[in-house]
Write a protein that binds this DNA or RNA. Structure first.
Lengths: 197, 197
DNA sequence: TAAATTTGCTAACGAACGTTAGGTTGTGTA
DNA sequence: TACACAACCTAACGTTCGTTAGCAAATTTA
């Protein structure tokens, strides 16, 4: 089932379908992407896809929750070392940017297409997102208590930080002039110290 | 056709349709909102809508370009007075936030649903967006030259600022504890001076 | 070599889609 | 009073949608 040619991992057919679907979901949106569009991109008939997946929504579900896992894993790693709130926030930002830039297409789906999930997946997803935001809120909270940050509202600050980060997937390209690490550094700099000289 | 009861302006049927459609487009997305959904929300039959509009896309087009006008008008007013780059940026941010908060539903459509426009509307819209971003870029550029700002990349800074602003529509509610003016002030503070104490 | 699995096909289903045609009703205007 | 028009209706169109049934070929596993 799994074969490896040299360094290149070969995807299962199901993974190929998910990858192709993810690209379409990013560029056209989930609702505007038909199973026939997906089949066409894969070079097969729409009905053939159902040899590998149960439904269209299963693809969306897998992409959304797989990315949620990735974001949590990255944040776990970033928070594994004790440090000041400033450094922890910098690490959390860097981790978030890494996940975003390493898979811009799945990130776009994760950020925008989750609302097409039906219940109870929809609620489960939102609960995960809340938990993720709460982790950032905790860092900000600690930073305020330690006197590192001055912020009018914790929740407001977190939403502003995350929304500044979550635009990256629309313009980031691996061949661009900024590396993911540089993007993270610049964002940390802007968010922590502002534009002012 | 137009009647006014006291202080309350009565909308034409076409405006009612657009308003209802905008709300649905925000909550479900353009592609996932059917004409029958819209008709149902209006309490009429789907076919009846075509007495007032030419097509589903006409609604999207009108909302997108009307909001583009609003953003440009607000920015024009914000930039009408000469001042330092810092003050001009603060005013531009405040103007943008005002438009966003005064019509969160149309803003959401403007920000997310434009990609369902067909050509040549799609290209026209993107050209307008570029022009809008360029206005912000010019402020940042001037701020750097005057020594007011220190920024690694102008375009990067503008995208980060706008993406931080453009999340507001997802959580802003008129009855919330922050007024649009306070939101704008807090955002200016965060973006210009950062989180750091 | 036989069996099981993977991968794909054609044909078709019922439902939902945007939209059109043609008609009815009520309301304000000439 | 006659007329225009706005607002909405029913019925239906052609198309596209996600999905299922049933089958065939190729490939992998036992």
């Amino acid at each position: 089932m799994f074969v490896t040619y040299g360094m290149e991992a070969v995807l299962t057919r199901k993974e190929q379908i998910e990858k192709t679907a993810t690209a379409l979901f990013k560029s056209k949106g989930y609702a505007a992407t038909s199973m026939r569009d997906l089949a066409n991109a894969l070079g097969i008939e729409a009905a053939s896809i159902y040899s590998h997946i149960r439904s269209k929504e299963e693809i969306l579900q897998r992409v959304c929750f797989k990315m949620a896992d990735e974001f949590f894993d990255a944040l776990d790693a970033a928070e594994s070392m004790e440090s000041t709130a400033t450094v922890r926030l910098q690490r959390a930002i860097a981790a978030h940017v890494q996940v975003l830039t390493q898979n811009t297409e799945a990130s776009a789906v994760f950020l925008h297409e989750w609302r097409h999930l039906s219940e109870p997946l929809h609620s489960n997803f939102l609960a995960l997102r809340d938990k993720y935001e709460a982790r950032f809120r905790e860092i900000i909270h600690e930073g305020i208590q330690r006197g590192e940050f001055t912020v009018p509202d914790e929740k407001f600050a977190v939403l502003t930080i995350l929304s500044a980060l979550n635009w990256i997937h629309t313009w980031y390209k691996p061949e661009g002039k900024m590396t993911p690490t540089e993007i993270a550094e610049n964002l940390s700099e802007m968010l922590l110290n502002g534009l002012r000289s």
